[in-house]
Nucleic acid binder design. Structure first.
Lengths: 198, 198
DNA sequence: ACTACAGTGTTGACGTTGTCAACATAGATA
DNA sequence: TATCTATGTTGACAACGTCAACACTGTAGT
């Protein structure tokens, strides 16, 4: 149990990322403000600047953690169905459900033009690790014969496009959210899988 | 040639939308500011508020025009290849190229959580018109036999997810942009079409 | 032609935000 | 114990969105 009144917070950096993530989940990105964040944690408004160059850097850290969390979700989903086409479907559904369950968070991860890869290599790495996870899955499916033997990197992009596209449309409210999102996700992924097969 | 010094601008509303769109294309959404926009046009900072309730309303109008423009692009692409599977492919490639050619604009159209459908029915309508265009194309393909006879509305969502997902990943720089974007788009859409066929 | 009005544009002001500069504190190290 | 470095604080500033009050102008009705 950390001291409440210590002059030094102890681990302000992670506290900031966690608080920001929690706030985003509840209220959306727009309500995240350096001053408000600091106040919630109990430090002064400029304390965050000892750990992040600016607000974008903080958000980039939050987004990177989002990619990491998503990757773990997918990993868990695969372990639940480790073999065959069910593995592919399981991962895809888990991806879409993560996005819709953490809508504002997911929006932050993608679509913030200020968060460019060159400035934030950690964010780049986290996103790329997610992609790598997908490539590995494609390879596994190729060995199982459920996906044709094209370049797995290229096919991974196609698959990523599909699940991200569906997630994005749902999260942004572009399509009326159906009663059973998992069902729509399954349909979409099965269609994708058929296309990837031959 | 409009008077430069007229007290009343004449058509400030469209001037605002056009200027904002141009600015977004060149510099991105973040640099669009009510004050800066007004200054560029030559009116005072609060003049826009006679035409838009707030900044989000202005951006929503810009986004709506973006959807409308995109729809026209797709229409043109279809007319170039009115028959068969080439029609589907042509539309998909045109979609992705529009997105990558107008990256910041495309990002505004999607992914602004402040721009919700309920507050801005015009934006909703413009986006839905785009969707309708897709449904019509799916129907045509079904009649031609290149797409299976499922509910066209559902298949349209699948197709939309795919082209939007690819566009989104490219626009956000999540994948290293390949030298020939149209080629990648073609590959993706062919994969999609195979999946939609059976 | 005069008047009233509604539409449009302007100026002033306020609170909020991100962030810099200067200063303060405390734990680690010599 | 003295010093250094990491960390946190206070004060200040410019930019921004936006409200309220006021000004201008073309139009409609008499």
């Amino acid at each position: 149990m950390p001291d409440k009144k210590a002059y030094h917070h102890g681990d302000l950096r992670t506290a900031l990322v966690q608080e920001a993530a929690a706030l985003i989940a509840v209220e959306g990105v727009d309500v995240v403000t350096m001053r408000g964040l600091s106040q919630r944690i109990g430090v002064s408004r400029t304390a965050p600047y000892r750990h992040f160059a600016d607000k974008d850097a903080l958000l980039a850290a939050v987004a990177a953690e989002g990619f990491s969390t998503l990757r773990q979700h997918l990993h868990t989903a695969i372990e639940a169905h480790p073999h065959g086409a069910a593995s592919f479907e399981s991962m895809g559904v888990a991806y879409v459900l993560f996005a819709t369950d953490h809508a504002a968070y997911y929006r932050l991860m993608y679509g913030r033009e200020a968060l460019d890869r060159e400035r934030f290599p950690d964010l780049h790495a986290a996103a790329h690790a997610l992609y790598d996870e997908l490539v590995a899955l494609i390879r596994q499916q190729q060995e199982a014969g459920t996906i044709r033997g094209d370049r797995p990197e290229a096919l991974a992009y196609v698959a990523w496009s599909t699940v991200h596209g569906l997630s994005s449309l749902l999260v942004d409210g572009q399509m009326e959210a159906p009663p059973d999102i998992a069902e729509l996700a399954r349909l979409t992924i099965q269609t994708l899988l058929v296309g990837l097969q031959t």
